[in-house]
Amino acid sequence: MSAQGPQPAADLLARLRAVDTCAVSDALDALGLPGAVLGLRCVTGSHRIAGRAVTVDLVEIGRTETSSRHLGTAAVDASSTGDVIVVAHGGRVTMSGWGGVLAAGAARNGVEGVVVDGAVRDVDEAADLGLPVFAVTGVPVTARGRVVERAWNVEVVLRGVTVRPGDFVLADGSGVVVVPAAEVEPVLAKAEAVVAKEQAMVAKVREGLPMVDVMGADYENLLKG
């Protein structure tokens, strides 16, 4: 928290967009926080997204009461610019947890992107819409008759990482990280410090210094201080 009090969410998102997942992961490590969601990649091209989490929790049919509302629709309707829809799909890769009609709605509402712990379908449609989707893989198999929404905008778990509504999500070519809303300012401060140190090291590389000197004690002590 700054001396003037907590920053507005828009300012925090701007700072988050200015760093990458590697720097944020390093910051989380330094502060003893979990947050790196492993095994997910952007299936719609090369994108970087940053936003606040709107969550969806999916379960297999039979494990909860069947809802007349299609999975993900309430989250899409409630989301807009600055939001990332996070779907806890339990790592399932034999059926989709997100599809093309949902992607059209998310794109219409200006959603930053979608993160799914499992498979998605209609990948080409999402790509054509310009909607970044991070997932395990793409499959053609529908969710109909297989999985349903247990709840939305609740605490979920993504590959061992807890995600709460309003948490900060950053995703890029290296993967996905989640920053608890209550910890975002110290994490950003540490990530920005990491970026500054790495930029100084790259400057030394461009000056022609030997790599053994550039990546000596400075690199090993990068997270200290």
Results as ranks from 00 to 15, higher is better:
residue 94 T to L: 13
residue 115 V to Q: 04
residue 104 A to V: 12
residue 161 V to P: 13
residue 34 P to N: 09
residue 158 L to A: 08
residue 8 P to C: 11
residue 28 L to T: 09
residue 104 A to Q: 13
residue 204 K to D: 11
residue 123 V to G: 09
residue 77 D to R: 15
residue 2 S to C: 12
residue 94 T to H: 11
residue 85 I to C: 11
residue 210 P to D: 14
residue 225 G to C: 01
residue 193 A to Y: 00
residue 220 E to P: 04
residue 146 R to S: 08
residue 60 E to S: 09
residue 82 G to K: 03
residue 109 N to M: 14
residue 14 A to G: 14
residue 127 A to F: 06
residue 117 D to N: 08
residue 203 A to R: 14
residue 77 D to W: 13
residue 75 A to E: 02
residue 130 G to A: 09
residue 8 P to A: 12
residue 33 L to N: 10
residue 120 V to P: 07
residue 47 H to P: 05
residue 192 E to M: 11
residue 198 E to M: 15
residue 59 V to H: 05
residue 103 A to I: 10
residue 93 V to F: 08
residue 206 R to N: 13
residue 141 V to K: 02
residue 191 A to N: 09
residue 209 L to N: 06
residue 19 V to Q: 06
residue 170 L to E: 07
residue 87 V to P: 06
residue 90 G to V: 09
residue 134 F to W: 14
residue 7 Q to P: 00
residue 161 V to I: 15
residue 44 T to K: 03
residue 200 A to V: 11
residue 89 H to T: 10
residue 40 L to W: 05
residue 14 A to H: 02
residue 83 D to S: 15
residue 87 V to W: 02
residue 100 G to I: 07
residue 136 V to K: 10
residue 122 D to F: 01
residue 18 A to E: 08
residue 114 V to R: 02
residue 33 L to T: 11
residue 185 E to P: 07
residue 171 A to E: 01
residue 98 W to R: 00
residue 222 L to H: 01
residue 216 G to L: 14
residue 121 R to S: 12
residue 113 G to M: 05
residue 144 R to G: 00
residue 212 V to I: 14
residue 149 E to T: 10
residue 41 R to G: 13
residue 2 S to N: 13
residue 17 R to V: 12
residue 153 N to I: 10
residue 77 D to Q: 15
residue 20 D to T: 12
residue 123 V to K: 05
residue 168 F to P: 10
residue 20 D to K: 06
residue 103 A to S: 15
residue 148 V to Q: 10
residue 166 G to T: 07
residue 134 F to S: 08
residue 80 S to Q: 04
residue 38 L to K: 05
residue 18 A to V: 10
residue 193 A to F: 00
residue 144 R to Q: 05
residue 62 G to C: 06
residue 30 A to Y: 01
residue 18 A to W: 01
residue 74 A to S: 13
residue 189 A to Y: 00
residue 85 I to R: 07
residue 39 G to Y: 01
residue 105 G to Y: 09
residue 223 L to R: 09
residue 216 G to P: 12
residue 203 A to W: 01
residue 35 G to R: 05
residue 82 G to S: 04
residue 108 R to W: 03
residue 133 V to P: 02
residue 154 V to Q: 03
residue 17 R to I: 10
residue 184 V to T: 12
residue 126 A to K: 05
residue 204 K to P: 01
residue 57 D to A: 06
residue 208 G to M: 12
residue 196 A to M: 14
residue 149 E to S: 12
residue 183 E to W: 00
residue 125 E to Y: 00
residue 83 D to V: 12
residue 91 G to Y: 05
residue 65 E to A: 14
residue 49 I to M: 10
residue 5 G to K: 02
residue 151 A to Y: 06
residue 65 E to T: 11
residue 217 A to Y: 00
residue 79 S to N: 09
residue 53 A to C: 11
residue 16 L to Y: 06
residue 119 A to Y: 04
residue 121 R to F: 03
residue 111 V to K: 00
